[in-house]
Simulated scan of single mutants.
Amino acid sequence: MSKTIKMFGLNIDSLSMNEAVDVVRSWILTGESDCKYVVTPNVDHVVQLEKNTAFKNAYLKASMIVADGKPVVLASKILGKPLPETIPGSDLVPNIFEHFNQSGTPLKIFLLGAMPGVGEVAAKNIKARWPSVDVVGILSPDFGFEKDAAYCDRICASIAASEADLLVIGLGAPKQELWINKYSHQIPVKVALCVGATIDFLAGNKPRAPIWMRSMGIEWLHRMLSEPKRLVKRYAIGAIVFPQIFLKEWWRTKVNPS
């Protein structure tokens, strides 16, 4: 693996998108079925990690942590330990699919999350665009499923029976990270990706921001305008709290440069 950058109490992997894809590919092709999982911190995650101990523990057990969001990467540069680039989960997943498809290497995936019917549409789109990628399982769990241990055991059994290589989890943070941390030992996939709304994006159920907005680091604005009731409060809190967290990190860096 790459070197890591210690920031916000996390060891963030200093990887480019291509490097992250290569690591995941190597885990899938040569690794054990030990459910290595990947998390992608953005501003909202950093804010939640400050107070949510269980969320922080799930992060600390992740096999890869890559930055999702321009503010996190900008913070790394100001702190003098620059990360190469942002690696949003919604970009990492299609890049992995593209890599396997170009090489003609079969990849079996399981889609966990999104609303009923969304995964099926995503599966059709995936097969049309990346023929080497085979969706071997789809599950949209009931609301509050994470509180039902027996139900969660059945989900794990379904994933195991599918013999998937890669688990794509779109449950939203911190639910997806908490869930995979608790149940990873029951899931014999090579890799699990905690990637929020990615299944919705693959289905075309939620539109991605235009490329120019993504390149400018304002995809958050597009998402907020698309889902104002759900996201305005989250982004408002992030805009207030994240700078405070950054200033604490900056001060710690000055006091203790190591």
Rank of each mutant, 00 (worst) to 15 (best):
V72M: 00
V66R: 01
L79R: 08
A75V: 03
L92K: 00
I109P: 00
W130V: 05
P131N: 12
N125M: 09
L107P: 09
A114R: 00
V133C: 10
P141W: 06
A123G: 06
T86A: 15
N95A: 15
V93R: 03
A114V: 02
I87K: 01
L139D: 07
E120I: 11
A122T: 07
A58W: 11
L139T: 04
E85L: 04
K77Q: 10
V73P: 02
E98I: 04
L92P: 03
G69P: 04
E120D: 15
D134Y: 14
V135I: 15
E85Q: 11
K81A: 12
N95C: 10
G104L: 14
Y59W: 13
I126T: 02
I96D: 00
S140K: 12
T86W: 09
E98H: 09
N101F: 15
N57M: 12
V121A: 07
D134I: 15
S90D: 04
T105N: 11
L92R: 01
L139S: 08
V93S: 05
M64P: 00
P82D: 10
A67N: 03
A128L: 13
D91I: 09
A114G: 02
W130S: 01
F55T: 03
L111T: 08
N95I: 06
I109K: 02
D91V: 07
V118M: 13
A128H: 13
F97H: 04
S90I: 03
I138Y: 02
L139H: 12
V73I: 13
A123N: 12
G113V: 06
Q102E: 11
I87S: 02
V121G: 10
L92V: 07
V72L: 03
T105F: 11
F55E: 00
I87A: 01
E120G: 14
P82Y: 02
P141T: 04
A67G: 08
P106M: 06
P82V: 04
I87P: 00
G119N: 03
T105H: 14
K127V: 08
V121F: 08
D134S: 11
V93F: 05
L92T: 02
A67I: 00
L79D: 14
F55Y: 11
L107S: 07
P94I: 08
F55L: 01
F55P: 00
G113P: 05
N57S: 14
V73S: 11
T86F: 06
G80N: 00
A122Y: 10
D68A: 05
S63L: 09
V136Y: 06
F143L: 15
A58H: 14
L74N: 10
V133P: 09
V136C: 13
H99N: 10
E85H: 06
A128M: 06
L83P: 00
V72A: 01
E85N: 04
A75P: 05
P94F: 13
S103A: 13
L83D: 00
M115Y: 15
S132P: 05
T53V: 15
A114K: 00
D142M: 07
A54E: 13
L79Y: 09
T86C: 15
P84K: 11
N101I: 11
P71I: 03
M115P: 08
V66H: 04
